[in-house]
Nucleic acid binder design. Sequence first.
DNA 1: TCACTAAGTAGTAACGATTACTATTACTGT
DNA 2: ACAGTAATAGTAATCGTTACTACTTAGTGA
Lengths: 126, 126
Amino acid sequence: MRSSRQRDAVLEVLRASYDHPTADMIFERVREEIPNISLGTVYRNLGQLKDEGFITVVESSDTKVHYEGNLTDHIHFLCKKCHNITDVFCESKIPAELSKMGHEVQSQKTVYYGVCKNCRDNIKSN
Amino acid sequence: MRSSRQRDAVLEVLRASYDHPTADMIFERVREEIPNISLGTVYRNLGQLKDEGFITVVESSDTKVHYEGNLTDHIHFLCKKCHNITDVFCESKIPAELSKMGHEVQSQKTVYYGVCKNCRDNIKSN
DNA sequence: TCACTAAGTAGTAACGATTACTATTACTGT
DNA sequence: ACAGTAATAGTAATCGTTACTACTTAGTGA
């Protein structure tokens, strides 16, 4: 993988974003710097950056894939009302059952679902 | 929601399946009983059964959505080699951070990624 | 029992996120 | 400078899923 202005920009945008953007959101943000970048280029670079371990993906309930550049160990909270994804930094250890079953664990993804603080407050005040 | 032969068959197939099938896999299995069922009917019923809480979905890394009829509390292990999804029954408690943040947690999904026992054994013997 | 009505269905068209393709451009080592 | 190869822009194609339409069926109330 050799360096390219487009891929650098995609990674830069993702590292500066804390809202787990989708490919088209990243596309819009990168376009501010490189107006003629193509959506295909964004997708291709997201794929490569993922394969190389520079970014991760968050499978949301909607049809689009969400990306994130924060590789710090954390989990996600997904609000059913506003559909925002919040980062939650907390401990999580691998269950003993998995090694007992003979599986080799390399990574994990945990998502909690519910109603976020903002939405709860709004409901109460209505 | 009133009863229909098609929806009953979809739920029946899913409850009898332990491999987290995709919509087209469920379609094929239901077709053995109802040969002229339409794929759209399968999708519609899967959506309704999900909304009503009779089934759940597993977001895999591939493009297709996986479904399951086993509502028992458990998590999943996804093998990066064979892409099989294994059920893992173990304890998992909600992190204190979430309630501290003011979020109301209703459900959770945890997926571990790695290499399953079968694939590890095959690699060793090669 | 018998319509009535709203939910469900089969079949097909449409949608939309993602991927593939192609001609062109830009790195990089020699 | 140049050859070789990776990357890009723009566009076409793919394919899982959803929407639509005319027709069927289950449940209800007289």
